[in-house]
Write a protein that binds this DNA or RNA. Structure first.
Lengths: 215, 215
DNA sequence: GTCTATACTCTGATAGAC
DNA sequence: GTCTATCAGAGTATAGAC
């Protein structure tokens, strides 16, 4: 994506790696808040503590920084869903997935907002991934969930929309963080409250209509 | 917010009103996609079919257009929650609220994205509303929901987070529309599927632990 | 590798003719 | 009310000294 065979990353000095990482971190901060067009190289450079030309020594263009960030993001973004184990206990597997997604929202809110910004703008730079890798992964896991439902091990819900609901509910706490905090007021810990709430929500939602084992 | 007592709007000619509305519509299109900073006056003017100076004849600045849009938005944004009737049937009232919000997401996706963009950017222009009117309204309705829960008429869930979940799940279909469609693939109607799914989801979630009337 | 200086384009906004 | 022309400033990116 950026250089030739012997790997550009491998040839980088320690200071280069550190600066690249500082730039990417600063860019994440700025892009996630203002979107691609709303962000400026100046702002990123200042946040990174570098001069603008120096920043552009590391990345050829604003576009290149954004691409690097998005590429890096998409790799980790799909990981939690990937980990959904068809062999595990259905309810616990799905609840664990919810927890992983909520952990990501708490620990990487900027990544979540970067993604949200990209989608809001019509996903110009990641449409291919959405229609390709993401769709394939979701279809795959949706089939697993559908099989669980057919076996009566979880409620019979449309698997794709079930996955959407997990995304929506977890990412909301990252993307709409300021609104959540404004409405809750002080003295709340949104994410720990969300963890308990979402656990109850999905436990109740996923419970099969006729319990396999019951009271 | 913009002129003096005898109401600026009342004095406007038909053509002025029409142009103002065209500008606001174009601005909604552009701001909702790119956010405040990412949008350009040029782009709005072109979308509206006006020259840039002509557009700036109607609105003093880019900021003024955005403010007009946001003011207009916040009025309608709170209406669906306002309509939640403490005297109605709890489950049906909440399901009707979900349906209203989903209808808004389907019919006014740009408004939803404008709001999302504003929140993602830290809500600089609407923080006061969030902490003021919105919080007051949510606190009020949360008390209603809490009372329903205490009476055993719905499940005992944290009311604020229940409201957040309604926002998250409905707005997701507007804000992340391109992702939803990319993942579902062709031949789907996301909103009608969502309507059925969310109805089931909240019906199941809200069902009280021990049914008041039942089999 | 990093900086200063600068080229050049885009953007918000205004002046002034019609 | 609408347009052409234009300004000042911000924006991306590059040249070239160190």
């Amino acid at each position: 994506m950026e250089d030739d065979a012997p790997s550009a990353a491998a040839r980088r000095s320690r200071i280069q790696k550190r600066n690249r990482q500082m730039i990417l971190d600063a860019a994440l901060e700025v892009f996630s808040q203002f979107g691609f067009r709303g962000a400026t190289v100046d702002q990123i450079a200042e946040t990174a503590g570098l001069s603008k030309p120096n920043l552009l020594y590391y990345f050829a263009s604003k576009e290149a920084i954004h691409r690097a960030l998005i590429d890096q993001l998409m790799q980790t973004w799909l990981a939690p869903l990937h980990a959904l184990d068809p062999g595990g206990d259905p309810v616990e597997e799905l609840l664990a997935y919810v927890r992983r997604k909520l952990d990501m929202a708490r620990d990487f809110p900027r990544e979540s907002r970067l993604f949200a910004n990209e989608i809001l703008q019509g996903a110009p730079r990641i449409m291919a991934v959405l229609q390709g890798d993401l769709k394939a992964l979701v279809d795959d896991k949706a089939a697993v969930i559908a099989a669980w439902a057919r076996a009566g091990r979880i409620a019979d819900l449309p698997p794709h929309h079930l996955i959407f609901s997990i995304w929506a509910l977890t990412q909301h706490y990252a993307d709409f963080d300021v609104q959540v905090r404004a409405v809750l007021g002080p003295g709340h810990d949104p994410f720990s409250e969300a963890e308990a709430f979402l656990d109850r929500l999905f436990r109740k939602l996923l419970a099969p209509a006729e319990p396999a084992s019951g009271r």
